[in-house]
Simulated assay, not measured.
Amino acid sequence: MAKQEITYYWGDNHLLINLGSRINTRMRVLYVFELLFTLGLASLIIFKSFPIHHHYFLWINITGASLLYFLAVRRFLLRMFLKESIVLDDQYIAFEKQTIFSKKVRRYDWRLLGPLHYEGHAKKTDHPLKGKTFDYFGFETQEQIIQVLHRNGNLYFETHDGRLYFALGVYSWHAEEMVQMMKMYMGNYLRLGPEWEEMLQTHEMDDVQ
């Protein structure tokens, strides 16, 4: 499954931002290795359970290993087939996350949302078309891989319930494009965190070079 492009659909009274599946090939490989490692660990637990003379301990080990199998496979499928979309209308913004198991929609009045932040700003990814040197292995075009394994999104709004994460696997140049589209709809109600000014200036300098 290839990484999908972000698409924008302007309706009569809404804007749909389809993020699709943003997990790249390298992350998928890591997910596969994590799955195999966990399944191997569960298999080792079962293998070490024999021979056990007390059936009570045997069934505890088998049950624990089976639970580990289930959680590992479920976690793998949730990550591999995650799709996201955002819908903006004249009052609300809805964040939709869809997996093969479920579909979750969170809906907020966008006038009440706090500033929008970019989580990956601390170590911003260089644009892959940036000159100077050629990135043969794509290392410079990746966010920190280990952090992405456990991250819920690269963008987040400040809300009264805490941080609202979304846009998993969206890098800085795509995030800027999304912000421009959302700002056309939300206007001054879309407030940006202080990191955006530096990000926009950096990319403007890259474009000039």
Rank of each mutant, 00 (worst) to 15 (best):
Phe101Cys: 01
Tyr189Met: 06
Met199Ile: 14
Leu44Val: 14
Leu112Tyr: 07
Glu34Met: 00
Glu176Gln: 10
Gln147Met: 15
Met205Ile: 02
Leu113Ala: 03
Met178Pro: 07
His203Asn: 10
Trp196Met: 00
Ile86Lys: 08
Trp10Val: 12
Phe47His: 10
Leu39His: 11
Asn152Trp: 04
Tyr92Trp: 12
Gln147Tyr: 15
Lys130Ile: 13
Phe57Val: 09
Leu78Phe: 02
Leu88His: 09
Leu129Met: 15
Val179Asp: 01
Arg26Phe: 06
Leu78Ala: 02
Phe57Cys: 07
Tyr56Arg: 07
Tyr69Leu: 03
His117Arg: 11
Asn24Gly: 05
Ile146Trp: 15
Lys83Arg: 15
Leu16Ala: 06
Lys123Cys: 04
Ser85Phe: 10
Phe50Val: 07
Leu35Glu: 08
Val208Glu: 14
Lys83Met: 09
Met1Cys: 08
Tyr189Cys: 08
Leu190Thr: 04
Tyr189Gln: 10
Met178Cys: 12
His53Glu: 09
Val87Phe: 06
Phe95Arg: 08
Leu78Ile: 02
Glu204Trp: 02
Val29Arg: 13
Thr125Gly: 01
Glu198Thr: 06
His55Pro: 02
Ile60Trp: 06
Phe70Trp: 01
Ala175Tyr: 10
Tyr185Lys: 12
Ala175His: 06
Leu88Ser: 10
Leu164Pro: 13
Gly153Arg: 01
Gln144Cys: 05
Leu36Ile: 13
His160Gln: 10
Leu113Trp: 00
Arg74Phe: 01
